[in-house]
């Protein structure tokens, strides 16, 4: 599998990364280099192998239903690049 320019553009948009048109060929080549190298995995026989998701525990631990957090409005907002009172602010979104 290899990426074409349109796919690189689409993937960049999905990832919300602005890519200048001039940079597309370089990116396309780099990504194809990596993907080409990754391609060797297809040689591994994985028939019937259960995919391994994580390295850790096999089951979730559950916590009790108690309010132990929140009530830190100012700290939550303190790093915001733009805020309006107790809200975060972003350019207007049209639904």
């Amino acid at each position: 599998m290899s990426l074409d320019t349109a796919t690189v553009r689409r993937v960049a948009s999905l990832a919300r990364l602005r890519v200048e048109e001039a940079d597309l060929p370089r990116l396309e080549a780099e990504l194809n280099g990596i993907l080409g190298w990754i391609e060797q995995l297809q040689a591994v026989d994985t028939q019937g192998v259960e995919p391994m998701a994580g390295g850790g525990a096999q089951a979730l631990r559950m916590r009790e239903d108690r309010v132990t957090d929140g009530g830190i409005q100012e700290q939550v907002l303190a790093n915001a690049p733009d805020r309006a009172g107790a809200f975060f602010a972003v350019p207007k979104v049209v639904e």
Binding site: L17, R18, V19, N79, A80, V90, P91, V93
Partner: peptide, 21 residues
């Protein structure tokens, strides 16, 4: 939106893309 660098954009998507780029 909530912390870190922000680069302004025409709309939210543009803001995201410019900020992350």
């Amino acid at each position: 939106v909530r912390f870190g660098l922000r680069e302004n954009g025409e709309d939210l998507k543009d803001l995201y893309e410019r900020t992350r780029a």
